[in-house]
Structure formats: C-alpha cells, structure tokens
C-alpha cells in the first residue's frame, strides 16, 4: 500500500520563477523566501517521495472558459510546461504516473466526485515553481499527478467540498497497492488580490488562522463560503482552496515541520508550510 508522507504547501508567485531564472536566491529581497526551502529540502531528503500529487489552479494555460472543470485530475504519461505568455521560462517535461492517476480517479468517482480527467495537460507555474523550489538542481526525481481546482471562475467549490475531495484522494492513495511514498504539494495563496480598487489587499490575521487551522483543524475552514474566502483572503486568496484540498489528502493527524510566512513577495502574502503525516485514523 502507498503511504502519504505529508505536504509542502507553498505560494507559487510567478516572480519566483523569474528570480530562479536570474539566480536571485541570495538577493536580500528574495533570501527570506528561498531560505524557507533549505530545511524543507532537508526534511525531504529524509522522506524522499516517489510521487508528488500537486494540487493547484490553472492560470489560463490548460483550461479556458469553454471547458472549465471544478476538479480535474491529470492522467498523462508526461506533462508539458508551456509558454504562459508573460515570460517565465518553461521547464523540461514532467513525468506522470498514469497508473496512480487512474487509481485516484476510480476512487474519487466511486466517492461521488465528478472529476474531469486529462490525458493531455499543460502545466503552468503553479505546478513547476513548487517543484523547482523543492528540487532546484534539476528535473525533480519524482513522478507527478496534477490535481487542478477551479479558483478562477465562480462558483468555486466550497472549502467543505475541497476538504472532502482531498480526503477521497487520500483514501485512494492509501488503498493503492504499490508501496509508493507520496508527497502532496499544495500550491498557491495565501492572501492576495490582483484586481479592483482593493488590489494589494493582504490579510495576515486570516492567513494566520488558515495556517493554524490547517495543521489539525481543517474543519475550522469548512464553514466559510467561497464568497467569505474572497472577502477575507482576496480574489486570488481563493487559492487557499488548493491548500484545503491538499490538507484533505494528507488526512489524519499532522505535525507542522516548519512554516515561513513572508511579506513582501510581489503582491502576495507568501507562505510555506510543511506538514508531516503522523497517523491516519482508519475509518
């Protein structure tokens, strides 16, 4: 049976990709952000995963409004990092694990989640940047399963639905026969807003609430409507739905290995939170 190690939840601000491309990791502006990944990589070296499930939102690369899924799961052999139009460098193709993808798809459809399956899928900075942060040396030594959550076009799935979706994915992984070690990446957030007169809105109080709750009280977030999430976290702060989904995948009891909340990075309250799964209650 496969085992979920834990999760690395991180912001995926495009500027990070630019900073990596320009080798600015030690620049004073960027250093406090990048330094959070040094202990993260140490933790990872002690818990090397075989597969990473990346929960993210597409930013208008793979999905358009002609076919906009609430939840989509990649089931491809390989995922292509593609031009997003505004200039962050692409990365080499990422290897998929279609057998695990299909096991997850079977599990979640059985659990009454109505996913869109993607046998071909372009992945954007929300997938590639977290992988580059964890494996800066080169191509990540893991296979991936991308899970896309709609945080773009309302109605978005509720926090409650996202947590349940993650839990269903987690059960499917733990029921998967091959003995894989699986890491979850939750990509996005925390509070930020790009558009409107409230552009630049940041809410450290709500971010703190989310970070604390995500350790072992994710149900504290499931009472919020998506409208309340937008109000409290900003329009793009809705990417917290990816973190809630990812926390659902981890399931059970978690230990916070580290946290690095850092403002300013671009327009966003950047955050990194590493959770280690320390026990799954059997249902």
């Amino acid at each position: 049976m496969s085992k979920i190690i834990g999760s690395v939840a991180t912001s995926h601000i495009p500027g990070i990709g630019g900073a990596i491309a320009k080798n600015l990791q030690h620049d004073p502006y960027w250093k406090p952000f990048f330094d959070g990944f040094i202990p993260t990589r140490e933790w990872l070296a002690n818990n090397p995963p075989d597969v990473v499930v990346v929960v993210y939102n597409d930013h208008g690369l793979n999905f358009f409004l002609d076919k906009m899924p609430t939840f989509a799961i990649g089931a491809a052999q390989v995922y292509i990092s593609e031009d997003e139009g505004w200039g962050i460098p692409t990365v080499p193709p990422l290897e998929g694990d279609p057998a695990l993808s299909w096991a997850i798809i079977e599990g979640v459809v059985q659990d009454e989640f109505d996913v869109t399956t993607c046998q071909e899928m372009l992945v954007d900075h929300a997938v590639t940047i977290p992988l580059q942060l964890l494996w800066p040396e080169g191509p990540p030594p893991v296979k991936i399963v991308p899970v896309a959550v709609n945080t773009v076009q309302h109605p978005l799935p509720s926090p409650a639905r996202c947590l349940k979706f993650g839990q269903s994915i987690g059960r499917a992984i733990e029921a998967y026969a091959p003995a894989l070690k699986v890491l979850v990446i939750s990509s996005g957030g925390l509070s930020h807003q790009l558009e409107g007169e409230r552009a630049g809105f940041i809410n450290p109080q709500f971010d703190a609430l989310c970070l604390n709750a995500l350790i072992n009280q994710p149900e504290k977030l499931t009472g919020y409507t998506t409208h309340a999430i937008v109000e409290l976290a900003g329009s793009q702060g809705a990417e917290i739905l990816n973190w809630i989904t990812g926390r659902g995948i981890v399931q059970g009891v978690a230990r916070e290995v580290l946290r690095n909340y850092h403002i300013p990075i671009s327009n966003t309250a950047s955050a990194l939170q590493v959770l280690e799964q320390v026990g799954v209650p059997r249902s």
Binding site: I202, P204, Q205, D207, A208, L209, L211, N212, A213, Q217, K220, R259, N260, Y261, H262, I263, P264, A269
Partner: peptide, 16 residues
C-alpha cells in the same frame, strides 16, 4: 504588512 510576519510564523497572530 511585513510587520505581521513574525507573529504569523510563531502562531501568535490568529483567533483559532
């Protein structure tokens, strides 16, 4: 907003 960083990181800033 950077003034909140430390309190968020220590978990002090939160009403959870």
């Amino acid at each position: 907003y950077a003034r909140f960083n430390a309190d968020v990181n220590t978990g002090r800033l939160s009403n959870v």
